[in-house]
């Protein structure tokens, strides 16, 4: 189908006109199409007038007045919807804030002037230093000129403390029960206590009998043979589960007794 040259020209102008309109703000009212022979200047564009229907404006105002659409931060007001716990926390923090304000001498604005300021700085610095030292596992006892302490034993592993045992009572009970094995053990532990009391050995629950023997040998060599024999007998009876007769027990106790007397008399054994 063919079209006339006149209608093609008219359509071209319509197209140009619509393109020019698309670069301008949408007007509330239709503007007359520009004359096809001249292009209107920008400053001559008519002012835009927004269309504000009455119903829409009222609806917008209604929504803005609702609490759900109020995004401004306002101080929390206790409301009947708040739980008892939330109200308690709010009061507690308010009270703490007032207390700190009083302590720091603040009136309205935060201020750290005065003595308390330095106290807080000091406490913070001490806390930081403590945490760092703990993380580095630094033994602080060295800083005060003490010898580094040994790792403390887990307390639950300490079954017995020889310094708290009542040896005479325990010995008598074991003998009366005919439990000579236990009696030998009690006699040996009493010897260890005596050695410890006289600083000839350093009592530690993790040390073996041979360790004590070495300590004693370095402190008082003359006592070594007697203690070595007492240790051997104890180990045979206790660890070796040697069946011990009353006669054998008498011999063992005699050896323990003799060594105990040497230690208890305070007489220096020639070394």
């Amino acid at each position: 189908m063919s079209t006339s040259p006149l209608s093609r020209r008219a359509r071209r102008w319509v197209l140009l006109g619509s393109l020019a309109l698309s670069t301008q703000p949408v007007a509330a009212t239709p503007t007359p199409a520009p004359a096809p022979t001249q292009t209107p200047a920008l400053d001559q564009t008519p002012a835009v007038r927004l269309r504000q229907p009455q119903a829409a404006t009222e609806r917008l105002r209604d929504l803005a007045s609702q609490r759900a659409f109020d995004y401004r931060q306002a101080p929390a007001e206790p409301s009947p919807q708040d739980s008892l716990w939330r109200r308690f926390l709010r009061r507690l923090f308010g009270w703490l804030g007032d207390l700190l304000d009083d302590l720091l001498g603040r009136s309205s604005a935060p201020s750290y002037e005065g003595f308390w300021r330095w106290v807080i700085y000091g406490l913070l610095a001490a806390a930081v230093i403590f945490v760092v030292l703990k993380l580095l596992e630094v033994d602080l006892t060295r800083a005060f000129g003490r010898t580094p302490r040994r790792m403390a034993l887990a307390y639950e592993t300490l079954g017995e403390n020889i310094h708290e045992l009542d040896f005479p009572v325990q010995l008598r009970a074991a003998e009366e029960a005919g439990n000579f094995r236990l009696a030998v053990r009690m006699g040996y532990l009493a010897l260890l206590k005596q050695l410890s009391d006289r600083a000839l050995i350093e009592w530690q629950p993790d040390k073996t009998n041979q360790a004590y023997l070495r300590e004693l040998a370095s402190q008082r060599p003359a006592l070594r043979p007697a203690f070595a024999e007492a240790t051997r007998q104890f180990e045979y009876v206790w660890y070796g589960e040697l069946a011990i007769t009353p006669t054998l027990y008498a011999a063992v106790r005699a050896e323990q007794f003799a060594l105990g007397r040497q230690l208890g008399s305070g007489q220096a054994v020639p070394s």
Binding site: E175, A254, R261
Partner: peptide
């Protein structure tokens, strides 16, 4: 003294 009590051997 802990090792002086209570036992006193009677037999050699």
């Amino acid at each position: 003294m802990e090792n002086e009590t209570p036992f006193h051997p009677t037999a050699p």
